[in-house]
C-alpha cells in the first residue's frame, strides 16, 4: 500500500500495489477522478473528462 497526493484538494489518496499507468482512482476526500501518470513513485493527475463514443 502506497499513497500519493490529490492534485485537486491536496488530500492523501491511498493506492493499491499493482498500480498501472492510465488507471483511474478516486480521491476519497474530494471525490475527484485522478489518473495515474507514473507508478514509481506514484504521481496522480486530474483524469480527463472523455465522451464515451466509439468510431466505426
Amino acid at each position: 500500500m502506497t499513497e500519493a497526493e490529490c492534485v485537486e484538494c491536496g488530500g492523501t489518496v491511498a493506492l493499491h500495489d499493482d498500480l498501472e499507468i492510465g488507471e483511474i482512482v478516486d480521491c476519497e476526500t474530494c471525490g475527484a477522478e485522478l489518473e495515474v501518470v507514473d507508478v514509481s513513485p506514484p504521481v496522480l493527475d486530474r483524469a480527463p473528462e472523455l465522451e464515451e463514443d466509439w468510431g466505426e
Binding site: E20, G22, E23, I24, E35, A47, P48, L50, E52, D53, W54, G55, E56
Partner: peptide, 19 residues
Amino acid sequence: AVRVVEDGKKKIKRGDHSG
C-alpha cells in the same frame, strides 16, 4: 484518449484514432 474498463479497473487508454 478513451476511458476503458480492464479487469474491473477504470483506465485511460491513449493512442485511439477516432472522432
